[in-house]
Design a protein around this nucleic acid. Structure first.
Length: 302
DNA sequence: GCGTCCAGGTCTACC
DNA sequence: GGTAGACCTGGACGC
């Protein structure tokens, strides 16, 4: 087993990032709470799969454990994937400064919360986000598990197969019926198929979406133009792209706000938006922090 | 065990 | 621009 250490910035918490939202609960992430590590399997090159263990001794620097020796080029790619997953290059200083100065949000610094876990690439994040729309979390788990175990490539290690997330080209080759019935995408199947085909043939350029030069409103419009991605999905994808201008409320977070900030009285999204306006371009992240605060307060398994 | 109902976000048609 | 209805599934509930 080979180990690589990765330095992390100030205000980084491995644990808080792992538990920041539901992604660590979806394949090809696999959380091992008993052994205190997060496994992830991915394509380091189009047809080369790697499975790694991610852990952190004092909740700070990240340890990457590999089952084999890799060359310098793979090592470089691996580090850049892990940096993307944990958002190590993103500057949160303004966010922490706002949190520190707010009585309601100064708890954030204590947990070094705020970084939301991502996948190895935007394609995987987008498909997973599509799988969260209009369904229960259980169904989201079923859809992603089917995509990964039925269509993803695999690597065998000590007799166990580890699957990675399928690339757009693989999904683009499937039939709508298969995605609908076998993958359990249901009515989302034509959306997924069309999206995969457009990514595979280059009609949708996800590198452009990651482009820091595109304005947030242009990026919102670009992602909203993809069928199946509505306001909720796009607003939350923008958070994964480091743009926190939109709330992306769903039924769960809306209810959390109502209970916590509105005395249990129903309200529309305009009122929710108004509450977080004070945080400017960070409003979406403060909203998410607010509704998920109790996740940090309770004792995590590690 | 079976049938019914409901929740969940997005799209389309319609006003 | 706003709204109703369809889409599909898992889970809760009643029988």
């Amino acid at each position: 087993m080979k180990k690589i250490k990765l330095e992390t910035p100030q205000n980084f918490s491995f644990k808080s990032t792992v538990y920041s939202h539901g992604w660590s609960d979806l394949l090809p992430f696999k959380l091992n709470e008993g052994a205190y590590y997060l496994r992830y399997t991915f394509n380091i090159y189009p047809y080369k799969i790697l499975t790694i263990k991610l852990s952190s001794e004092h909740d700070k620097d990240i340890t990457i454990e590999l089952p084999m020796v890799i060359d310098e080029s793979d090592r470089k790619n691996l580090k850049s994937v892990v940096k993307r997953i944990f958002r190590l290059d993103e500057d949160f200083s303004e966010f922490y400064s706002l949190a520190e100065n707010s009585q309601k949000f100064n708890w954030i610094q204590k947990y070094n919360a705020g970084r939301m876990l991502r996948s190895a690439n935007l394609w995987e994040d987008m498909v997973k986000m599509l799988c969260t729309t209009n369904c229960t979390w259980r169904l989201t788990q079923i859809m992603t598990e089917n995509l990964v175990t039925k269509l993803g490539g695999s690597i065998e290690l000590n007799g166990i197969k580890y699957f990675c997330f399928p690339q757009a080209e693989i999904i683009a080759d499937q039939s709508e019926i298969y995605l609908r019935n076998d993958i359990k995408m249901g009515y989302r199947a034509p959306y997924l198929l069309a999206f995969a085909q457009q990514v595979a043939n280059g009609h949708i350029d996800l590198n452009e979406a990651e482009n820091k030069n595109m304005s947030t409103s242009d990026l919102y419009k670009y992602l909203r133009s993809i069928k199946g991605f509505g306001d909720y999905a796009v607003s939350n994808l923008l958070k994964l792209l480091g743009r926190y201008d939109f709330l992306g409320a769903d039924s769960w977070s809306r209810q959390k706000f109502i209970d916590k900030r509105n005395n249990g009285k129903k309200c529309n999204d305009k009122k929710i938006e108004k509450f977080y306006t004070q945080f400017g371009k960070w409003s979406g992240l403060f909203f998410w922090m607010d509704v998920s605060e109790d996740w940090y307060q309770r004792e995590q398994p590690w």
